[in-house]
Amino acid sequence: MRAAVLAALLLAAMPAAGAEERRSGFADMSAATQAMQADDAANPGMLWVLDGEGRWSRKAGRTERSCADCHGEAAASMRGVAARYPAIDAERGEAVDLAGRIALCQTRHQEATPAPRESEASLALTAFVAHQSRGLPIAPPDDPRIALLQAEGAALYRMRRGQLNLSCAQCHDDNAGRRLAGSVIPQGHPTGYPLYRLEWQGLGSLQRRLRGCTTGVRAESFAPGSHDAIALEAYLMSRAAGMPVETPAVRP
């Protein structure tokens, strides 16, 4: 009996599960929501993937070229790409996330007006490209500039913010698995983006998800595509390295 009490006390004193065992937000969902994600005929995110597939071969911009004209079959050319973003764009020497990378192709290679972030066109193409990496392990690029960005992101992740004065780490490392009002606090891994959130009734990016977390603590949100937003994403991806890409995931 005493041994059991002691064990329980020790368990309570241990750091949250996050330290030893990583789990995707998928594991924290109800069986019904998991079933919805697992079945492509029921996963609403697949509607955007399908939309993106159509856009992939549509000619656009002054050059009248489609993504497929340059990249061919996405199943081959885009396989594993999403798993290593954010990455450095060689021409600018700066990091971009996947949506930003696609927008660069639209301006640079198609000479088209890039689809704004969070627009249906941007989400559909990003989901289609990311879907080509589904099941592959997240593998951030081995590049010192990315390492620097990850370190910046790690600092942002640990910084207390907002009127509630909470850091990402306080929820997603220290209290993961516990409840915040009705929801289980997940470990906060970016494995499924863009993903279908039941609360949104639609597809959304990681940056939109983060807006929910920052406004939740009454802090200013990161501007989508900004240096800080990409640094934070780079850190989250390094924290989730090796976990499989789930795009399009479903979340509550």
């Binding site: 005929a41 509607l47 939309d51």
Partner: peptide, 9 residues
């Protein structure tokens, strides 16, 4: 038979 359609409802 299963049917999923994109619609804002």
């Amino acid at each position: 038979l299963r049917a999923l359609i994109q619609h804002p409802m």
